[in-house]
Amino acid sequence: MSALEARQQSAAGTDGTGTLRLIRLAGLVATAALVFGIVPEVLGSLWLKVLISAAIYGLAASGVALLYARLGLVSLMQVALVGVGGWVTLKMWHATGLPFEIDMLAGGLAAAIVGALLGLPALRMRGLYFALVTLMAAAAFQIFITATQFPNGGEGWLGVSRSAPAFMPRPLLATTDAAMFRYVVAVAVLCFLAIEACRRSRAGRAWALIRKSEASAMAAGVSVAFYKLAAFALAGFVAGVAGGLLAATIGVLDARSFPAADSVMLFALTLVGGAYAFLGQAITGLLFRAVPALLNDVGVDGDIAFLIFGAALLHALITAPTGIAGQLFGLFGRLIRLGGRR
């Protein structure tokens, strides 16, 4: 909860002092220049691909964070929803050949519908018990997708080819790795902004009220069911879009990429990154994809890398209850105060 307060404080501070706003703006511009201008030019193909994956899963994590930070709900099925989005995107492309953006939106919508349907039980239950419903959904998805696989241009409803598999090409705007990286980051930022817009609208106020007390939300005339499901739909949508981006990056998808355990892992890392700010989800994406790649690249044995990863996960959950982003914001706040005193 302290992270939330810290955020609110820093938000209040932004409105108050001009210098802070300036620092923030300068930071944003510098980050944008770094991400869009410099990073794609200096990195090799390996690290660009790793960062693309990290951005994609950071985007997926923003859905998990939305549910957790705004409604206190835990979703352990986000990676499965990424799979749903990827499946629909691939199916759409192979079936219709429409531009990638339309296929991706279809993937996002499909995952939103599935997410909202699986969110239905949340109207009546919460906490661990609800989290386990979502885990069951993720586990069932793993079984179903292993048996059906992802479309690769084949015949029939499932679209799995018996002979030469076809790749889905990258979007026209992003045929190279560098362009794909910019494309993925731009889509992720758009989704982040959409979530932020919802948070600041009527929906955000409804979520805040529901989180405080469902009874008083109802008494205030808020449709608890509608806004809860809207949150699930939004979380599902970003997962679906992430799935579409993943499919575009590689061209094909494999059932092995979406195990139930990964959904649990993504939630854990969302906590570790920090659920209350988008910086946290960026960190989550990096932890989920860039850290294992780094360990692999420096030649750490794959098993030992997992050992380090598990230990680090436990350590971070214990020592950083507000997530790494929360710690960074705390640090930043202290620095500002120090500077102000001088």
Partner: peptide, 9 residues
């Protein structure tokens, strides 16, 4: 969720 970290270890 934390026990998953232990499981992975």
């Amino acid at each position: 969720v934390a026990t998953l970290g232990f499981a992975i270890m």
